[in-house]
Design a protein around this nucleic acid. Structure first.
Lengths: 155, 155
DNA sequence: TGACATTCCGTGTTATAACATCTATCGTCC
DNA sequence: GGACGATAGATGTTATAACACGGAATGTCA
């Protein structure tokens, strides 16, 4: 029986190895989740990267974080954090201020508008999470998390 | 004990639910794998999307595929298949020809140069796959594939 | 056969990603 | 305190993604 993924991408031949299939499975699943996420966030006018930044800055509290620190905490590496924050500042989602103590740093903080976006979007995103993982037993979710962590460790 | 992912993205608070952690785990793992893939492909002058197209077209054989069919088979949805193939044609990785039977379709086929890229890059990519999944027992890989398939089914 | 919807591509436009390079600021060491 | 390297951002540039729209070819049905 051909695998589900094989059918999804209309691939004629079976995968040469379980690793090859697992590799593509991770990529395809992430692409679907990101797309789903983007759809949900669209009405709020933010991309999933921007949403991620908002969550990071909310977590940082009133102290805020400098650009480098935000970049470190992002799910996927973004080399161009300056302009990402530029855009978010132009949208009034964040506020920035040059750190008086170390003038190389620019501290970013989430704005009231940014907090509002998070507040409105979060319940809907929780539904997405719950829906996606509803079919999996808790033990399977735990195994999934562990397996993915192992994959990230290797290089 | 804080989870590994929590430490990776320097998140202060623990995840509110296993689903939330699993969700981000998939996204982060895929981002790392894609980045790794891009690094390996860079010397060959192709992006991972282009590499994906080459594999699809090789799988299609001499009959080739029209743009829509290529798009359907891609791991992640690409709305702009025309220009993706434009670029690959300009790089002489693929050849295109309007289908005489149905002149709406443009059939794309992999070129000798495209085949050559695949031939040279594939062994290195197999090493990446094997390395990443080497720490996982076969049974765990199987469970991972199944879990991801279940996540993709739900919406 | 002629209106009409549908399919598949191409194109215009904007936003973002990716990469390299440049500038300002700071720490260190003599 | 001045040279030096290191760090954080900013900026220029190119390539690509994302979205919307338009046009050609085809199928359908009266």
């Amino acid at each position: 029986m051909p695998s589900q993924l094989q059918a999804e991408i209309k691939q004629g031949k079976p995968f040469p190895s379980p690793s090859a299939e697992a590799f593509l499975s991770v990529l395809r699943t992430a692409a679907m989740l990101e797309h789903h996420l983007s759809e949900v966030l669209k009405p709020y006018g933010v991309t999933h990267t921007q949403y991620n930044v908002l969550r990071i800055l909310r977590g940082a509290g009133s102290g805020g974080l400098c650009g480098r620190e935000v970049a470190e905490r992002l799910v996927s590496r973004v080399p161009d954090i300056s302009r990402l924050l530029d855009r978010m500042e132009a949208m009034h989602l964040v506020e920035r201020e040059r750190d008086p103590a170390d003038r190389r740093n620019v501290t970013a903080r989430i704005s009231a508008k940014g907090l509002n976006v998070l507040k409105r979007a979060t319940p809907e995103l929780k539904v997405v999470e719950r829906t996606r993982f509803a079919g999996l037993e808790p033990e399977r979710v735990k195994l999934l998390i562990e397996a993915l962590a192992q994959i990230r460790e290797r290089r």
